[in-house]
Amino acid sequence: MDKDHRQISIRLNGKKHNYEESAEPEAAAANEEDELLSLPEPEKKTSKIIDFGKRLHERKKNDQPFWDDGNREQGPKLPLKRKKKRRTTIGLSLKSLPMSMIIAVVSAVIIGISFGFMVLTVFTSDRIEPTTAPSMETNEPLGTPVITEGEVTIPALTVDIVQGGAFSTADKGEVGVANLQRSGYAAVISKANEPVLLFIGVGNNREEAAAVADLYKENGQEVYLKSLTIPTVQMPATETSSATFLAEGGELFHELITLSVNSLNSSSPTEKQLTAIEQKHVQWKEKQQQFVSDFSELSEPASAFASSLSSAVEQLKQPNSNQQFWQVQQSLLDGLLIYQELIQKAQSNG
């Protein structure tokens, strides 16, 4: 290699450049300067490229907000109006309930109301509206029999009773009767029902029975008021119509009760009232013999019923007093039980 023309190889940016040394240093320097000025600029390092579309896709995929670059189509939007969720309420309807539960609830209500009325009727004596005795469907006056072809219908007899108690046996009831009668009160026991009931007063309606009950309350006696109805009865019609004896006896019985209760207010029966009741009693007694003749099987209770009413009429003639009142009540209570027995026998024979 010639010393005057030495070559130098330089590699820049992967490119090889050859340089020769010139004998003339100045010329070589000039040439080198020219070469240096003509060298290509080094390549700039490439920076990382950000793909905003890709990022937008990823952020939308991840439900993340995207910055607003001015493109409103791709920019963030206001959230859509969401409908308010309706409150869910849990409601019950009859259709959703089982039939067995509905029947049980209705039955419980009916039983509760019935029991309430029963307790009100049996265990209360004050503030109860008076009740009147029912009449026949044909609106016949009380005590007037309904006569049809071959049959006589005797109207029902309804009264209100002052009840003094109930006993498991008749023997215990008799002890209660004896104690009350010994104290001057009226008392009988009804064996028609179980338990045995103690009756200590009678009125045509609730108001009259309450007036009698007040006398017991003043002396500390616990009492109850209840209605008692002796039902209608159909009896064979006879040529003498003797069956009307029972109907007229029931009417007389009601009138005697009224006179008895009125005497509590120190209003003794007037002469006119006593005369009227006595005449009616005599006329009724005249039919007794014919009735016993036509219905011999009823002769015993019919005679006993007539005797109890006769006793009440006689006692009303006595001077008004507390003793006289209870004697009349005793005769009427006796007559009530006998009349009940008489109707029961008439029904069984019919």
Rank of each mutant, 00 (worst) to 15 (best):
S47W: 09
Q64W: 08
P76W: 02
G53Y: 07
K83A: 11
T46I: 11
R82Q: 14
K77P: 01
T46N: 12
I50W: 14
G75A: 13
R72L: 06
S47Y: 11
K48W: 08
P65H: 05
D51M: 05
D69H: 10
D68I: 05
F52Y: 15
K83R: 15
R86N: 13
R72D: 03
T46M: 08
P65L: 08
I50H: 14
G70K: 06
K61P: 00
E58W: 11
L78K: 11
G53L: 08
R55M: 09
L78G: 03
G53P: 01
K84D: 11
P79T: 06
R55W: 08
N62H: 12
G75C: 01
D68M: 05
I50E: 12
L56R: 15
S47M: 10
P65C: 02
E58T: 13
F52P: 00
G70C: 05
N71Q: 10
R82T: 14
N62V: 00
D69E: 12
T89A: 02
K48E: 10
P79W: 01
K48H: 11
I90Y: 04
D63C: 04
D63A: 11
K48N: 07
I49S: 10
L78P: 06
R59Q: 09
L56Q: 07
P76M: 02
K60T: 05
E73V: 02
K61F: 04
D63L: 10
T89K: 10
L80D: 10
G91F: 00
L78R: 12
W67S: 11
D69S: 11
L78H: 04
T46Y: 06
K83P: 05
K81R: 14
F52H: 14
K48Q: 11
F52W: 15
G53I: 07
R86I: 09
K48Y: 11
G53A: 13
F52D: 05
Q74E: 06
R87H: 07
D69K: 12
R72A: 04
F52R: 14
I90M: 00
D69P: 03
Q64T: 10
R82Y: 05
T89Y: 07
K83Y: 10
L56D: 06
R86A: 12
K54I: 05
W67K: 12
S47D: 13
R86Y: 06
H57V: 07
G53D: 15
F66K: 04
R82E: 13
D69L: 11
P76R: 09
I90W: 02
K85A: 14
H57N: 08
S47N: 13
F66I: 15
D63G: 10
G70D: 02
D69V: 07
E73K: 02
I50S: 09
Q64L: 15
